[in-house]
Amino acid sequence: MDTIAFPALAEADRRLPLYLTICGHWNNQEAIIREQGFTDYQWLQCVSGTGELFIGDARHIVKAGQGFLLLPEVPHRYWPMEEPWDVHFISFNGMIAETLLRQAGMMESGVYTTENSETIVSHMRNMYAMSQSDRSYLAIECSKLVYMFLLDLMKAAEAGAQSELTYSRLQPVFAYIEANMDKPVAIKELAACIGVTPQYLCLLFKKSVNMRPMVYVNRERINRSKELMFYESRIPLHEIARRVGFDSASYFSSVFKKQEGITPEQFKKLHGMR
């Protein structure tokens, strides 16, 4: 459900070390363009889907499990790429906001991978629930929640940075998969790309993308097949299956349905393709 709240703030509330200005959730985040930036600090946490973020001229992709920080007055724009782009968001300010963010290693606007993103989202939901309550000293109660949020964000970002290092190490494997999308690949080949055993490769994939290597391969094959169906809609499905490395159209359809919940034929019909 889409939600948004603007906690009422008196002048004295704005002298708190931290204070909450906006919080909420969009089931599918719409396009936002702010050429002059925004007045407060913002954190947006992606739950599902994929978004595109521009900070100045720098382009970033935001995926599930990642969040992005926007510092005050920094020009930015963002919109969904893969819908629904499910996003929780808060805006906050206060005299210690910058200090806490710097302690978390967040010294500039950008995208950050967070471990235990469920904890981050839980904090954001709690802030929204509190802002809707009739508690006395509401701004102070919200301030306490923002403080707890930033402390946990500090831990989540540090752990997420380690995950990013693992992801970077896997780049040769991802490149190999991309280059051999139309061929069968074995896990031994993938492990050889970075000189590790298949067992250790599985551990790296689990840490980085939370799935086994061959599950990742099939996911990428299915994503490529959807692109082919969009851009070359007259290609028969058995040819699409071959181009994305499946031995048979029936196995391709089985994997497609397991991942997408519908068959390739239903996918084409749903999107008005012949």
Rank of each mutant, 00 (worst) to 15 (best):
V121D: 14
K207L: 09
F68V: 03
L150P: 00
Q42W: 11
I55W: 05
T39W: 06
R34A: 15
E82C: 11
I187N: 12
R169D: 13
P84Y: 09
C46Y: 02
D247H: 14
H123L: 05
S91T: 07
L16C: 06
N93F: 09
A104E: 08
D13C: 10
G67R: 02
P72T: 10
G65Q: 01
I96H: 07
E178S: 12
S91Q: 03
G245S: 04
C23F: 02
A175G: 05
I120Q: 01
W79P: 02
P184S: 12
G94R: 04
S250Q: 13
K258C: 09
F6S: 00
W43S: 04
F92N: 00
L150K: 01
A156R: 04
P80N: 04
R77P: 04
I240N: 11
Q29G: 01
I96Q: 04
M106I: 06
R15F: 08
K206I: 03
A159Q: 06
S248F: 08
S91P: 03
K268V: 07
A191T: 14
Q266N: 02
D134Y: 09
V146W: 08
Y200P: 00
L228E: 14
C202N: 12
C193F: 04
P172I: 15
E108R: 04
T119D: 11
R14G: 01
V255A: 11
M130A: 13
R234C: 10
M95L: 08
A186P: 09
V209K: 06
S109F: 01
R219P: 00
D86G: 04
S91L: 13
E82I: 13
D86S: 14
D2E: 13
V255W: 05
Q199E: 12
E83S: 07
Y176F: 15
M273D: 03
E108M: 11
N218E: 04
V185L: 06
F252V: 07
F246T: 08
M81T: 15
A156G: 05
